[in-house]
Nucleic acid binder design. Structure first.
Length: 781
DNA sequence: CAGTGAGCGAGCTTCCGCTTGACTT
């Protein structure tokens, strides 16, 4: 009898399942979706009740062909795609393409790749759930409509029109970044003076140790001053000691989002790097599937963990825990991310090791006992006034899960008053405490930090926007489109005041700190800000943070069979299309224009705005008799924050530094950054040079050095034929005009001896057999 | 590689969500 054919989405899963099911089944993978809407006319027949037209994309034709021929030969086809909306749709598309009847074809589901789960699934097949499929079609069609209607609006209305795009997910992601930036710009720090005193007491071994206690906060320096004055010559004694038990519980096992967050905080990985490494671990069978929103573990895994924890740390450290998903949008088609075998504490692959160990620890900790703490608070009385001081300390009584893992937190989750509690020395009520010193330190409130890739993912997940498989690609998209940039920001120096009471005298001093420094954060570009404002103005519905949640509720209604998908789409499309048409008709071009003031020399208006090639400033207007002068903004500047002085500074380029070897030395900023132009040649300026201040003495050595370096790279030149023999980073090569030609390996050894005829032959050879072009790897974060 | 900032308008771009692929500048 012919074998059964069982189709899953992932090839790695196929292998495992084939082992479990044995001889009767051949298990194959369809590699995700096999069909998509065609691009012509959006792939949707609006007039015909939104009828979708699907095609098998080029890159999927091989898989589809193979599945078709296997299906023909097989006894029965089983559909085992993931148990979620997308998985159901994939099963239906498979029916359509393989000529199977969705009403009778066996459809099975499982959430975990374990023998009991899969054998149980095979025992109770169902058929494709068309309501769920329709919910997916509605999702797909709505996303296509939003993306393919909105993007062209941007092409029409933006002066910078190079493949701009808009979409349900990406545009809201940019909005999140844009709004945070504006909050930060609008933030005014408020300072307070916090009282902190340090005392000495004896520890258990009788040694004198210093500990600190905190008091009132004052909003003004005068209040703090007055308080410290009142403490001169005061005595301090303990009036009360309270000891309270506390506990800490471990976090749930990893989902895609929490893995990305922790790998970012603990290992400094970008979201895409985390996913790349996780994919490698998954493909080599080391961890379970890495694109998941589920926090649950399989029974098998739980048993495995119990045994592992008990044998490594003892029964006391084990605690059974079943985690529930707090996230309403979760579809839970898979397990949480965990090691496949807990007995493997690490992996050989050095690249993957740190991520694996992180997953191992988090999984382990999730089934371990709470950590037990003891929190001590001592109240300290001041003899000369009514205020009290409080000293707090924390002692770990039982480490529990902290033995293996401690979760990191984002800056914005840590409240201002929180502090790291250390141990207190043993204190007794009525004990007199000698004061070391008391300080009132000025502290400034801080704005929320800018988003990292990972904290953006966290925010998107909270809003139910995007899916585990799209978090990393979404970030790549908004970076690639130039809506957002990932970069560092240097901090600025700020002074703060300290009032110090020591030896019965109060003194004032000023210290400085760096504030506002950020590393690898997401900043909106002017393009991102301007496009966000535009979309918010004309499409506030789609830009609403809860838009996705709202339509998800409707997709659920479709999935439950209470709503027809075409009706749902029509309800959305009719008003949306009206907005699109109205915007195209009436909206002004997007410029983000901001008037900065007037040029002190000419008295003309100075304006910052978006231009054809990016953000810029201009003196004068288009209609003036004289053409306006233009200058590009620096990378770190923004239309929103640049002031008149900074703008005028930009017009100082190009600068002429004088004559060198009889030719002018000019400095300017071009398409590729700052450069020196000299004798028709260009020399890029490194980061260490500032084009606005660089002088003749600094500029000429750059010319000389770069020229020498170029000489070194040049092996031979044939002026007449415009052929150069050069040394590049990949070895010697031939350059004729603008084209480069690779020199065959066997001839690279003696390039110096290559003659013109031989070189020409190589060029002809390469032209005749052009090297296969590999699609350039997409730049990812 | 290294200007530009306006308009004409051919032909093109674009979405989200599933999944991995394969090779030389």
């Amino acid at each position: 009898m012919a074998k059964n054919l069982l189709i899953v989405e992932s090839p790695a899963k196929a292998k495992t399942i084939e082992r479990i099911l044995g001889e009767d089944f051949e298990v194959k993978s369809c590699y995700g979706h096999i069909r998509d809407l065609e691009k012509q006319d959006m792939g949707i027949d609006i007039k015909n009740n939104y009828k979708p037209s699907y095609i098998v994309p080029e890159e999927k034709q091989k898989v589809v062909k193979e599945l078709k021929s296997l299906a023909k030969k097989s006894g029965e086809v089983w559909l085992a795609t993931d148990e979620d909306r997308e998985g159901e749709a994939i099963s239906w598309h498979l029916c359509e393409v393989l000529g199977l009847d969705p009403k009778t074809t066996k459809r099975i589901v499982f959430h975990e790749i374990t023998k009991p789960a899969i054998l149980a699934a095979v025992q109770k097949p169902r058929t494709v759930d068309m309501n769920l499929v329709n919910a997916q079609q509605a999702r797909r069609i709505l996303d296509r409509i939003v993306g393919f209607e909105l993007s062209p609006v941007l092409w029409r209305k933006m002066s910078m029109k190079n493949n701009l795009s808009a979409g349900r997910v990406q545009s809201v992601a940019v909005r999140i970044i844009a709004e945070r930036e504006r909050e930060i710009n609008a933030f005014t720090p408020v300072s307070t003076f916090k009282i902190e005193a340090s005392f000495t007491s004896k520890d258990i071994s009788g040694k004198n140790v210093v500990f600190s206690a905190e008091g009132k906060k004052f909003s003004q320096e005068a209040g703090a001053q007055e308080f410290l004055n009142s403490c001169i010559n005061a005595k301090y004694s303990v009036t009360d000691i309270q000891v309270k038990p506390g506990k800490k519980s471990p976090a749930a096992p990893f989902t895609t989002s929490t893995l990305q967050q922790e790998a970012s905080r603990k290992l400094g990985y970008s979201v895409s790097r985390t996913m790349l490494l996780a994919q490698k671990l998954y493909e080599s069978g080391k961890i379970t599937y890495m694109r998941t929103d589920s926090v649950s573990l399989s029974e098998t895994a739980m048993d495995n963990l119990k045994a592992e924890i008990s044998s490594k740390f003892g029964n006391k450290y084990y605690q059974h825990r079943a985690f529930k998903n707090k996230n309403e949008s979760a579809q839970e088609a898979h397990e949480a991310i965990r090691p496949t075998y807990m007995e493997n504490m690490t992996v050989d692959d050095a690249d993957c090791r740190r991520l694996y160990e992180l997953i191992w620890k988090r999984t382990m900790a999730s089934q371990m006992a709470d950590a037990e703490l003891e929190k001590t608070t001592a109240v300290i009385q001041i003899s000369s006034n009514k205020e009290e001081l409080k000293a707090t300390g924390e002692v770990l009584k039982f480490d529990g899960f902290l033995k293996v893992y401690r979760e990191d937190r984002d800056d914005d989750d840590i409240t201002e008053d929180e502090q790291q509690d250390d141990m207190l020395p043993p204190l007794t009520v009525n004990q007199q405490l000698p004061l070391v010193e008391m300080r009132a330190t000025e502290r400034f409130s801080r704005p929320l930090p800018r988003y990292t890739e990972a904290s953006l993912v966290k925010k998107l997940e909270e809003l139910g926007i995007g899916r585990p498989s799209t978090y990393a690609p979404t970030i790549s998209t908004i970076l690639k489109r130039g809506y957002v940039e990932k970069r560092d920001k240097e901090g600025v120096i700020r002074h703060f005041r300290i009032l110090k009471l020591k030896d019965n005298a109060v003194n004032k001093l000023t210290e400085q700190e760096t504030t506002g420094a950020e590393k690898s954060k997401l900043f909106p570009t002017d393009l991102g800000l301007v496009v966000t404002d535009f979309l918010k103005q004309y499409f506030d519905d789609i830009m609403d943070y809860h838009f996705t949640a709202r339509i998800e509720a409707e997709f659920d209604e479709v999935a439950n069979g209470n709503l027809k998908w075409n009706n749902m789409i029509d309800e959305f499309y009719t008003p949306f299309k009206k907005d699109v048409d109205n915007t195209i008709e009436n909206a002004e071009r997007i410029s983000g224009e901001r008037e900065l003031g007037t040029d002190p020399v000419t008295g003309k208006k100075v304006i910052a705005r978006m231009g054809r090639y990016g953000p810029m400033v201009q003196i004068g207007e288009q209609n003036d008799e004289e053409k306006p002068k233009f200058a590009k903004l620096k990378n770190t500047q923004s239309i929103e924050t640049i002031n008149l002085d900074e703008a005028m500074e930009l017009f100082r380029l190009p600068r002429n530094l004088g004559l060198f070897e009889g030719n002018e030395v000019a400095v300017n900023i071009g398409r590729f950054g700052p450069y020196i132009a000299h004798d028709k040649l260009f020399y890029s300026l490194g980061k260490e040079f500032d084009p606005y201040t660089i002088g003749f003495e600094e500029a000429t050595p750059i010319i000389v050095e770069k020229r020498a370096a170029k000489q070194q790279r040049t092996i031979k030149v044939f002026e007449k034929e415009k052929i150069q023999l050069l040394r590049g980073p990949y070895g010697p090569y031939i350059k004729q005009g603008l084209r480069n030609y690779k020199i065959p390996k066997e001839k690279q050894e003696h390039v110096e001896g290559l003659e013109l005829a031989e070189i020409k032959a190589i060029i002809e050879e390469v032209k005749a057999n052009p090297p296969k072009r590999v699609p350039r790897k997409k730049k990812s974060s």
